[in-house]
């Protein structure tokens, strides 16, 4: 009943037999134990499950794992680590862009794509581009500041 799935996750080749109805987020969380990617709504509105699929930000709760066949997936665990944070992660810390931390990985993954598309984003651009992510803690004020600063830092 399982179908073989082979892909690259955070630069590492991964292969497994999966039930065809397995979602990408379930594969990442349950099979690979990459629990930094979160499920906040299971209907594609909250964005907590955002990862990169072939360098595009996607909602991993809205994709079957098998749709990632042969692809390259990057999760929050793949962009920086304690002691060696990515400039965008650093910016979130410096600007207090997170509180409970649950939506944070998805927002950081979206912010990375945002910064690639808009290397000098205005606050309005950041607010508009964040429409796929929900945060209930911060009121977005510091997230917006963090992304503007993070985008600037990424150019250095």
């Amino acid at each position: 009943m399982g179908i073989n799935l082979s892909l690259t996750v955070n630069g590492r080749a991964v292969s497994a037999d999966v039930d065809p109805r397995t979602l990408l987020v379930q594969f990442l969380r349950d099979h690979l134990r990459l629990t930094g990617t979160h499920v906040g709504c299971d209907t594609g509105q909250c964005g907590a499950c955002t990862v990169h699929l072939n360098d595009r930000a996607v909602k991993s709760c809205n994709l079957l794992a098998l749709q990632a066949q042969g692809a390259s997936v990057t999760t929050i665990e793949g962009i920086g680590e304690p002691g060696k944070l990515h400039p965008m992660q650093e910016a979130f810390r410096a600007h207090h862009g997170l509180q409970c931390g649950f939506c944070t990985p998805g927002i950081v993954m979206n912010a990375l794509e945002l910064a690639r598309k808009h290397p000098n984003p205005s606050e309005d651009t950041v607010r508009a581009e964040l429409d796929g992510n929900l945060c209930r803690c911060t009121g977005y004020h510091n997230i917006v500041k963090a992304i503007v600063a993070g985008a600037a830092a990424m150019k250095r």
Partner: peptide, 21 residues
């Protein structure tokens, strides 16, 4: 002061209840 808890949340290292198996 910057938050002590941030690094784990920013690197996917938090442990939320659904992460417990």
């Amino acid at each position: 002061i910057q938050r002590k808890e941030d690094v784990r949340f920013l690197t996917g290292g938090g442990t939320f209840t659904d992460d417990v198996n």
